[in-house]
Design a binder for these strands. Structure first.
Length: 816
RNA sequence: GCGAGAGUGGCGAAACUGGUAGACGCGCUAGACUUAGGAUCUAGUGUCCGUAGGACGUGGGGGUUCGAGUCCCUUCUCUCGCACCA
């Protein structure tokens, strides 16, 4: 047995796996199926970095472990291949995105193979291939037909650097999620998916899935369901009605003014001539503010009176109408009834502009006028007409009923969630399959004409005009309805549309008459284990759930949640800074893989720390992992050269105990993605083996048990170092792949020892250790503890008040 | 500002329902084998004082308990998420 040559064994086993099709999943058998999916990757021109390995390596280790536990594991990989970087590259260098993407994919596929994962390469998918995006377009039409896709002109988020609009989810603190540029507002006619129709379903489903609580709460937060009332305020001396949404209808009697968002449609109509200049100036100012400035809680509240009044329906009072930028046009009705006595924002505004503050809720029914701050807690309704004296909490529904009865309003649920804007003014995406005809309007492309292929000949300007516009041959097409002159939609779809359904495609990536095979995916989905970055919490993960729910509603699939269990890998930083190409601090794994091999590198990553935590990159310990894996290898070398031939039974028991303990702990830890502690269990077993082999002569060493432990060791390490595992499995005379061998079992009885060392404490402080029989009675333990010579001096001449015995753990003597 | 999570040796980190803090590893020290070793093996390694043996130790302060890294209160620091949502 020669020194470990990882290069040759990696190549050797990758070739064998490939030839034997070891990782081709038999999808016709869904018994004990396990669909393990890691978020697919964007094929950029860069090499895979440490973050990719951190994402894919451990997940593959987990999948291999599950396979050995007897699961029929399906672990596919694909490419989220549409997107801006390829197009920006085309603008800069002139290489067509289709060419650069194909090149990147073929490079990345090679790198992925070096990782040695169990990917089923026959099931690879590429979202930019016509065979795939045909079905992305089909989904668009499906949503369109079901009134879940619509076109409207609306103020939308515009990223000047990406030269396209963005969905709300892609705007982070007023900046582009992708490039950090400040996002501005533009009025454009765009396509939306009606995800808001699914707000309640998206909320409800969260209770049924095993996801990190944090992610679920982010989604709940994003959906932002809020229950309250809609109240109609008639304009004084006019026909117009201002509708407001409020969660506190119980404070209706405390309204002293009304605030509209500056962009509210009634503003211009209600502005009186003498206020016009001020109002217009204010609106202009608001426009200039970025979303961040406008929604900053730090900012002092501003606003102007527009000259009109409206009437509070419950008491007939005239209240002035203001506009203020703290009221958002996009939430609720874009109008707020201001109750400064019981809302901190209204209070601040009223104080600023000396508007009246009225008290209508009181903790105990006693008035505290003048209020020093808004009282926002529940209490007793006061100065509230017929409701005076009512407790405010139940008062909410009573007032709602009252409003309904009078026709002044009613109950209402509002959401923060907005419809998903999917149009992008870019080239490298799936074309939206719509045609505009002067006679027939917007006409969907008939399904049998899909895919609407991306034309190759376009001009990439990056100007913000859709590049597809520049190919008039492509744009001009007959209207499918009337045959007259039609024009194709020139925007493409957000790439999040492509990734909203890719997990459905993997089992049947080449199906050409449907996006997926219903029978097959009803058996194989939902995904049992999904792994990916937490940054997708309210984007991809919300959109994918939406798609699944739509398909479920329309009867296409049986399940309504795509990912049963979700895990987020942590982030690997470099000196505390998140790695990114733009910062130029990306650590390339290539040199490590060259020096140590993919197995050792993967295992070192997993040993660094908790998977979900991530951590700061340092290669300080990689040398130690190299040492360990070589030590592991040498153990086999030693056993081969100096074959154990005895049947000694005493010392071997210690090794057996470690073995069973290692198997037990590792099985438990691996299940929960606790790779670092799993690895330390293997190390413990290796250490125990070394001790044994070095202390017991080979002619006495228990041959049979050692051979068993040897096999166990290979099985335990294989998910971490798959190439090494296979090599050792073969060298120790096994036929077939170690990944077809079953995961070792442990025997609880083997973990026990006859005697056990107990800690002896006096007044809670450790003073000695005693040896007693396993499961000894309290009286025996107590006597043994008192007999201990070290303990004697702590107890002598003192009164023993209490003796606490924790079975097989410790004894604590409480003395005075 | 609100919410969640975290803070443990020189370093990466362990510790199940409160029960011997620091598993496993890096680094370091000593020894062995060596022409040599940045290889390997063995032993040691929380801090302080020491001869046995002690004292102190999980961000700080307080509490509950026979016993607290773990539970409670308070405070500091960091990370993440949300942030005028009516």
């Amino acid at each position: 047995m020669a020194d470990l040559n990882f290069k040759s064994i990696e190549k050797k086993w990758q070739k064998i796996w490939d030839e034997q099709g070891l990782y081709k999943t038999n999808l016709t058998n869904a018994e004990k199926k396990l669909y393990c999916l890691v978020m697919f990757l964007y094929p950029s021109g860069d090499r895979l970095h440490i973050g990719h390995w951190w994402n894919y390596g451990p997940t593959d280790t987990w999948a291999r472990f599950k396979r050995m536990q007897g699961f029929n594991v399906f672990e596919p990989m694909g490419y989220d291949a549409f997107g801006l970087p390829a197009e920006n590259y085309a603008i800069k260098v002139g290489v067509h995105p289709a060419i650069s993407t194909a090149q990147n994919i073929s490079n990345i596929r090679e790198q992925l193979k070096a990782l040695g994962a169990m990917y089923d390469w026959d099931n690879e998918i590429n979202t930019s291939s016509p065979e795939y995006y045909k079905w992305t377009q089909w989904f668009f039409l499906l949503l369109y037909k079901n009134k879940l896709a619509y076109r409207k002109k609306a103020p939308v988020n515009w990223c000047p650097s990406c030269a396209t609009v963005l969905a709300n989810e892609q705007v982070v603190d007023g900046s582009c999620e992708r490039c950090d540029s400040e996002v501005s507002q533009k009025d454009l006619e765009q396509w939306f998916f009606k995800i808001t129709d699914y707000a309640d379903k998206l909320l409800e489903g969260l209770d049924r899935i095993d996801w990190p609580e944090k992610t679920k709460s982010m989604q709940r937060n994003w959906i932002g369901r809020s229950e309250g009332a809609l109240v109609k305020f008639q304009i004084d001396g006019g026909d117009d009605v201002i509708e407001v949404f409020t969660t506190r209808p119980d404070t209706l009697w405390g309204v002293t003014y009304m605030v509209l968002a500056p962009e509210h449609p009634l503003v211009s109509e209600l502005t009186q001539p003498e206020h016009k200049v001020a109002v217009e100036t204010y609106i202009k100012q608001t426009r200039k503010l970025t979303e961040i400035d406008r929604t900053s809680t730090e900012k002092e509240k501003t606003g102007v009176f527009i000259g009109s009044y409206c009437v509070n329906p419950v008491n007939g009072e005239k209240v002035p109408v203001w506009i203020a930028d703290y009221v958002l046009g996009s939430y609720g009705t874009g109008a707020v009834m201001a109750v400064p006595g019981h809302d901190t924002r209204d209070f601040a505004f009223a104080t600023q502009y000396q508007l009246p503050i009225r008290e209508v809720i009181s903790l105990d029914g006693q008035s505290r006028i003048p209020l020093k701050e808004a009282y926002t807690e529940p209490g007793t309704m006061i100065n509230s007409g017929p409701f005076t004296g009512e407790p405010s909490k139940p008062g909410i529904s009573k007032v709602i009923a009252f409003l309904e009865e009078k026709g002044w309003g009613g109950s209402k649920v509002t959401y923060k969630l907005r419809d998903w804007l999917i149009s992008r003014q870019r080239y490298w995406g799936a074309p939206i399959p719509m045609i505009y005809c002067d006679k027939c309007g917007a006409v969907p492309v008939p399904e049998d004409q899909l895919p609407v292929k991306l034309p190759e000949e376009v001009e990439f300007s990056g100007s913000g005009e859709s590049p597809l516009k520049t190919n008039s041959d492509w744009v001009n097409t007959p209207c499918p309805e009337c045959g007259g002159a039609g024009r194709r939609e020139v925007d493409t779809m957000d790439t999040f549309v492509c990734s909203s359904w890719y997990y459905l495609r993997f089992p049947n990536p080449n199906l050409d008459d449907a996006p997926f095979n219903k029978d097959l995916i009803d058996q194989w989905l939902p995904v049992d284990q999904y792994v990916g970055g937490a940054e997708h919490a309210v984007m991809h993960l919300l959109y994918a759930r939406f798609f699944t729910k739509v398909l479920n509603d329309l009867g296409y699939i049986k399940f309504d949640e795509p990912f049963s269990r979700l895990m987020h890998q942590g982030v690997i930083t470099n000196s505390g800074v998140k790695m990114s190409k733009s910062k130029g601090n990306v650590i390339n794994p290539d040199t490590y893989i060259r020096d140590y091999g993919s197995d050792i590198f993967r295992m070192y990553l997993m040993f660094m720390g908790a998977y979900t935590e991530g951590g700061d990159w340092s290669d300080d310990g990689i040398h130690g992992m190299n040492r360990f894996v070589n030590r592991f290898w040498r153990l086999f070398e030693m056993m081969e050269e100096n074959q154990p031939i005895g049947n000694e039974t005493k010392a071997i028991q210690d090794v057996e105990r470690v073995r069973h303990n290692s198997v037990k702990m590792l099985t438990h830890d691996l299940d929960r993605f606790q790779f670092n502690t799993s690895i330390s269990r293997i190390m413990e077993l290796v250490n125990a083996m070394y001790l044994y082999i070095q202390n017991v002569p080979a002619d006495q060493q228990n041959r049979e048990i050692l051979n068993e432990i040897r096999d166990t060791l290979i099985q335990l390490i294989s998910p971490f170092t798959p190439h090494l595992g296979e090599e050792l499995w073969e060298r120790t005379g096994h036929s077939g792949s170690v990944f077809n061998a079953s995961w070792p079992e442990w025997d609880e009885d083997k973990l026990k020892t006859d005697t056990i060392t107990l800690a002896v404490q006096v007044n809670g402080k450790l003073r000695s250790n005693i040896e007693v029989d396993l499961d000894s009675e309290q009286s025996i333990v107590e006597a043994a503890a008192l007999a201990d010579h070290k303990i004697k001096k702590y107890v002598e001449g003192k009164q023993i008040l209490r003796v606490i015995v924790v079975k097989n753990k410790l004894v604590n003597l409480v003395v005075q």
